[in-house]
Design a protein around this nucleic acid. Structure first.
Lengths: 196, 196
DNA sequence: CCCATATTTGAGTGTTAACTCTAATTTGTG
DNA sequence: CACAAATTAGAGTTAACACTCAAATATGGG
């Protein structure tokens, strides 16, 4: 019955599953709104309408709840990581643009964790770097599909530049919620597509 | 003799000035290395070789010390904000590249604060946004100087895309200290310069 | 070298953080 | 509907946090 450090409930009843969802919802919106510093157990429990005892019945630690939300955010950046060879560059950029527009909380979590959490958690940093590399590969092959005459090395470099620029847009969105993500994503796409 | 909330020393002796420098050095490197969460009074004092009483003799609060370092970081991003009409685009990009390479601690402070501190401190967010706008203007006029036939609106948009992309590079540098900033800054410049 | 004042010391304050524990309650199943 | 297990309640523990203060010491102008 013991499962590592703390005993976490097996969640056989639906009440537990609903509570877990409420806690994750609260954690997600708190990280997005206040950052990691403002995301305390008390704040999470207040927002979720739950007491600390219930929290620790479902999560071994505060970090575990946060990491669950972070993994969710990382997964949400790419809509379909398995389909590796069909997306066009336009589709990839548009997908990221939609992610930023439609899931702003997750997008903010992604950026916040990239700069805050990665400093103290090496495993998380590795995960983010691997995720970045995967994204560059996808963008690179989309570029090569669009312009087959381009050398692979050149395409990869251009892909990385593009991904970094998109992250710059996401970063600025954290600072300025009114920032027009769509317009800038398209401006970026225009630049990237024009150059031979 | 009272100066607001707490009484901060007048710093007439050089001992106090040296201590203040050590505290600011410690604060800067701690924010860069561990983020805001890891930057505690105890950590600052240990690193600076000082006791809490000395800290509060020189700073009214922890926030004041952090804001001092943050202002320093914001100022360091632009080498000469007054010279408004002589820099070329190459020089502006190169200057940012050098800032990232030569003052990595300040660069990390800048990025960390942009996503962490700006959430809770509206005044800081406003300052960062104004700073961003100023940078976009400088980049925009450099572009127009280089390509006078370009419409101002178009130049401004391209400038903003470029600044955002550079911030994306700085963001990635926080994640990966081995990241080749120079190569990517130049790749970006190449793309921006090629397009008519 | 005096002495007003700047600076440092270091123990101490109150608060809040994460987390624990036992008892009470709710849930679904045989 | 009974009962075993899951879930919740809520007070309590421990540690770390930002910050204070009175006493001791160092500084440098006169």
């Amino acid at each position: 019955m013991k499962a590592g450090v703390a005993t976490v409930s097996a969640m056989r009843y639906k009440a537990g599953l609903e509570t877990k969802d409420r806690i994750l919802d609260a954690t997600r919106s708190l990280i997005a709104a206040k950052g990691l510093e403002g995301t305390t157990i008390k704040a999470i429990c207040d927002e979720a309408g739950v007491l600390p005892g219930s929290f620790y019945n479902l999560f071994a630690s505060k970090e575990q709840a946060i990491l669950t939300v972070v993994r969710e955010a990382i997964d949400a950046v790419d809509p379909d990581p398995r389909g590796q060879g069909t997306d066009t560059l336009d589709e990839l950029v548009l997908a990221y643009e939609r992610f930023l527009e439609e899931q702003p909380a997750l997008a903010r979590v992604y950026i916040r964790i990239a700069v805050s959490g990665a400093a103290t958690n090496p495993e998380l940093r590795g995960r983010l770097l691997r995720h970045h590399e995967g994204r560059v590969r996808r963008f690179g092959s989309a570029i090569q599909r669009h312009a087959p005459e381009m050398a692979e090395e050149h395409a990869t470099r251009r892909a990385e530049t593009l991904v970094l620029a998109l992250n710059g847009i996401a970063l600025h969105r954290v600072l300025d919620p009114h920032f027009d993500v769509a317009a800038h994503a398209r401006a970026l796409l225009e630049v990237a597509a024009t150059v031979g």
